[in-house]
Amino acid sequence: MNSLKKILLGEQGLVVIFAAAFVIVSIFVPNFLSERNMLGLLQSVVTIGIVSCTMMFCLASRDFDLSVGSTVAFSGMIAVMVSNASGSILLGLLAALLAGGAVGLFNGVVIAKFRINALITTLATMQIVRGLALIASDGRAVGINDPNFYQLALSRIFTIPTPIWIMILLFIVFGFVLNRTVFGKNTLAIGGNPEASRLAGVNVVRMRIWIFALQGFVCAIAGILLASRITSGQPNAATGLELSVISACVLGGVSLAGGRAAMTGVIVGVLIMGIAENVMNLLNIQAFYQYVVRGCILLIAVLLDNLRSTAAGRGRV
């Protein structure tokens, strides 16, 4: 019992849980292991996966971002509308990235410079940005005029859809940033002890602003790919995304108390969220039940985080 506990709460605990779940599901759920289903599964976690990359930084520095779902919808909307208006997809994408980055920058400045609680700030921007998306589109979906826009999501490289490649690329980039750059290590240091980091010469305010700006920018990438996949800009897209993303991160061992994060963990967390949803779909479980399951997963994730912190000998701050 004790050794089992050790494994489950240890560094590799999540990977063990994931592997076990994967094997069980492969055996008992028909069609799960097929190539088509696997690609579908990965396709379905692209948005969560991409946004998790930067949410990981946000949580690791002891911050929080609830506005990601709205930002994804808003920037997707911008991409479509600007492309339609200007006739240039490139311009649309650029505008979307700028818009996403601007939302993040705004969050960062308010939170770090004016010292407003991140939860409250992003709760506010979450609604403001969603509102902007609805106002811009008058509440309706906006269709894409140029069919080339679809190609972003539909095209394949070595038989694997482009969005999956982009997600993998971002996993690699942000894994590198976290572990091998001053930016990543400073992020973890801020989360571990902000005052000590400040006294050690880390510019904590600027770091936090950058982390949020980056988060907004990456949300825009996710928003563009989502818009391309659903062939339109939807003002109501990606509602509740923030919860799935935070669940995935926490499930992946990112500590809500800050200072602890690993890219591999987050990837596994994302896949667990994806598999849970995929399996429920394959088993024809009604969508209503899926909410309950998702909530349960979040609870378990937080419980695990708490147990892990206690096991690591440091209380929640």
Partner: peptide, 17 residues
């Protein structure tokens, strides 16, 4: 409260600045 960065290694604590 002002010195160590908990949860990070000795190495990272030395090289932080």
């Amino acid at each position: 409260f002002d010195g160590i960065v908990q949860g990070r290694s000795i190495e990272e604590n030395i090289t932080i600045s």
